[in-house]
Computed example of a mutant assay.
Amino acid sequence: MRMLISVLSLALLAGCVSPAMDTARSKSPTRVLASAKPTPLVAECIKFSWQDESVFGVDASAYVNTDKSGQQTVYTRGAESFADLLPQGTGTAVSYYAKQPDDAAAMRRLAMLATCL
């Protein structure tokens, strides 16, 4: 039962943040980065680093979504910050978006993301 509730909650959360992400994607990213590492490895690293409660406190949330083309998105609750990861050869292209790019939390998330490249 708990598993069902978790799955439904995640599905609802993904449905709520998608319009916010689409709006952000209509503008240029806060930062564009690249990594020589494979996309799944970079995505898991970002997700793990964004879940660090010692850095982000109670707002330490991160989720990964993979679409059919292989693009992965790591995002926070409410899509305050998210990163689109696209495979490029053997590496990964990363587009980082933040609702408020000068916000301290958004800058910390960008710094944590950079450690995964």
Rank of each mutant, 00 (worst) to 15 (best):
Ala14Val: 11
Ser54Tyr: 12
Glu80Phe: 15
Thr66Ala: 12
Cys45Ile: 09
Lys37His: 10
Ala60Lys: 06
Thr39Val: 05
Ile46Met: 01
Tyr96Trp: 11
Thr76Glu: 02
Glu53His: 05
Gly78Val: 00
Arg108Met: 09
Ala114Trp: 03
Cys116Gln: 07
Arg25Gly: 12
Asp67Met: 08
Gln51Cys: 03
Lys37Gln: 09
Leu85Val: 03
Gln72Lys: 00
Ser54Asp: 11
Leu110Phe: 12
Ser18Leu: 15
Cys16Ile: 14
Ala60Ile: 07
Leu117Asn: 07
Ala60Asn: 05
Gln100Leu: 14
Val55Gly: 01
Asp52Met: 01
Ala60Val: 04
Val55Met: 11
Gln72Arg: 00
Cys116Gly: 08
Thr23Glu: 13
Glu80Met: 14
Met112Arg: 10
Val42Tyr: 02
Leu110Pro: 15
Met107Ala: 13
Arg77Ala: 14
Ala24Thr: 04
Thr30Ile: 00
Ser81Phe: 01
Ser18Val: 10
Ser9Gly: 11
Gln72Met: 05
Cys116Leu: 00
Lys47Ile: 06
Leu85Glu: 01
Gln100Arg: 08
Thr39Tyr: 02
Pro101Ser: 00
Leu10Trp: 14
Arg2Gln: 12
Ala105Leu: 08
Val58Arg: 15
Leu33Trp: 00
Ala93Leu: 07
Ser9Cys: 09
Ala24Asp: 06
Thr66Glu: 12
Met112Lys: 14
Ala83Gln: 06
Ala98Pro: 02
Ser61Phe: 15
Asp52Gln: 02
Tyr75His: 12
Leu8Lys: 04
Leu85Asn: 03
Arg77Gly: 13
Thr92Ile: 00
Ser81Pro: 03
Ser26Asp: 03
Asp84Lys: 02
Gln51Asp: 01
Gln72His: 06
Leu4Asn: 15
Ser81Val: 01
Asp59His: 14
Gly70Ala: 04
Gln71Val: 14
Ala79Gly: 08
Trp50Glu: 03
Asp52Arg: 09
Ala104His: 04
Asp103Gln: 07
Tyr97Gly: 03
Ala106Asn: 02
Phe56Met: 13
Val64Tyr: 04
Ala79His: 03
Lys37Asn: 10
Met1Asp: 10
Tyr97Lys: 05
Gly70Cys: 07
Val42Cys: 05
Arg2Glu: 10
Thr39Arg: 02
Ala114Tyr: 04
Ala62His: 01
Val17Trp: 04
Leu110Gln: 10
Cys16Asp: 10
Ile5Gln: 15
Lys37Tyr: 10
Met1His: 08
Trp50Thr: 04
Ser26Ile: 06
Gly15Gln: 05
Pro29Ala: 03
Leu12Val: 01
Leu110Trp: 15
Met112Leu: 08
Cys45Met: 09
Ser6Gly: 11
Ala111Asn: 15
Val32Ser: 06
Ala114Gly: 10
Met3Gln: 09
Ser18Glu: 14
Leu113Gln: 05
Ser26Trp: 00
Trp50Lys: 00
Ile5Val: 12
Leu13Trp: 11
Phe48Lys: 15
Thr23Lys: 15
Ala62Phe: 07
Thr23Pro: 09
Ala62Arg: 03
Ala20Asn: 07
Thr30Gln: 05
Ala93Asp: 08
Asp22Phe: 10
Ile46Asn: 01
Arg2Pro: 06
Ile5Ala: 13
Glu53Ile: 06
Ala105Gln: 12
Leu13His: 13
Ser95Thr: 02
Val74Pro: 13
Leu12Ala: 04
Gln88Phe: 10
Leu10Ala: 11
